[in-house]
């Protein structure tokens, strides 16, 4: 327990060196890692999505690959390919960039659905099936994807099924003025390439196991189910949260509790993670009002989740 806090603290401090002034975002990223999840970092360009992802990746020992997604990319470009080896007279699998511990999938919505969906099995099953054979991915395995919400030109929005596979969707947001000034001055901001790992791979696996063991009181589970049920019954939503979503929320909340130095859940954990864990899993019903054309579904979804969280009574 004590060492879990210490490890997480070290990790957060390291990441925070690269991403100044965003402790909440760093905390969410670490939660995603500890909860064995994949992160979708979504925001306008230039706020540090890639910085966050690569800082997290570089802070833990183990392999790191960065894939810059483009529209002409093929699934084999990320999964790998079987090539004929004349010496042995067989096809030999050449693993793609996915075969590593942390994958930074930059601008994931720039590539075609075909390539996007090739990520699907890998993210969910931690394995790759190719040419009748299955290749396990190393552990831990984590995908950090970034995407631009505003650049619709030439993008392919992620399908619902694939969004559902991300544990959390994180927004970074603009930094505060003093923090931004510090960035401009170049104070205390080493290039994230220079970060050194502070956690070994085994440490990460151990933390993930610890998070599984966090105690969830019946009342907190009831509260979580009340939130999920509200998304399924809300008249504003066309699609509520799936059981995978509720499981994701629980896992994320448990990791959050661990990061908060607790071995039990409190409603705050669930409440804090409801928006990042749920808002990308729901579909907002098309609005009938005059501003129906205003396209900002993500903002709407978050507002609805926030409203639900405000409404559902907390266990006491």
């Amino acid at each position: 327990m004590g060492s879990a806090i210490e490890l997480i603290g070290r990790l957060e401090a390291n990441v925070a060196r690269a991403l100044v002034g965003k402790p909440e975002v760093v905390r969410l990223a670490v939660v995603g890692l500890v909860a064995r999840g994949h992160l979708l970092i979504e925001d306008v360009p230039g706020v540090g999505k890639t910085t966050l992802a690569s800082a997290l990746a570089r802070s833990i020992g183990g392999g790191f690959q960065r894939i810059q997604f483009t529209s002409d990319m093929l699934p084999s470009d990320i999964l790998g390919v079987s090539v004929w080896e004349p010496a042995r007279g067989t096809f030999v699998f050449k693993p793609g960039p996915l075969f590593t511990n942390v994958v930074l999938a930059d601008e994931i919505n720039r590539t075609t659905p075909k390539t996007q969906s090739s990520l699907l099995e890998a993210m969910n099953e931690a394995q790759v099936s190719l040419d009748h054979s299955t290749h396990a991915l190393p552990r831990p395995f984590m995908v950090l994807a970034t995407q631009n919400p505003l650049e619709y030109e030439g993008t392919h929005p992620l399908p619902e099924s694939q969004l559902d596979r991300f544990l959390l969707r994180i927004r970074v947001g603009y930094p505060d003025t003093p923090d931004e000034k510090a960035i401009l001055r170049g104070d205390a901001m080493p290039p994230h390439e220079s970060l050194t790992p502070v956690l070994a791979v085994d440490d990460v696996l151990w933390l993930q196991d610890e998070a599984e063991r966090v105690r969830a009181d019946e009342s907190v589970l009831d509260y979580l189910m009340a939130l999920i049920g509200a998304t399924r019954n809300s008249p504003l939503l066309a699609l509520g949260v799936s059981p995978r979503g509720s499981l994701a929320l629980l896992r994320a909340a448990k990791a959050h509790a661990l990061a908060d130095a607790r071995d039990y859940l409190v409603p705050d954990d669930v409440k804090r993670l409801a928006v990042p864990a749920l808002s990308h899993r729901i579909l907002v019903r098309a609005r009938m009002s005059s501003d129906a054309g205003r396209a900002e579904p993500a903002g709407d979804a978050e507002a609805i989740i926030r409203a639900i969280v405000r409404e559902i009574p907390v266990p006491r």
Binding site: V266, V309, V314, R316
Partner: peptide
């Protein structure tokens, strides 16, 4: 008085 959706910490 705590509100409906207000946790102990809030």
């Amino acid at each position: 008085v705590p509100a409906r959706g207000e946790t102990a910490r809030e």
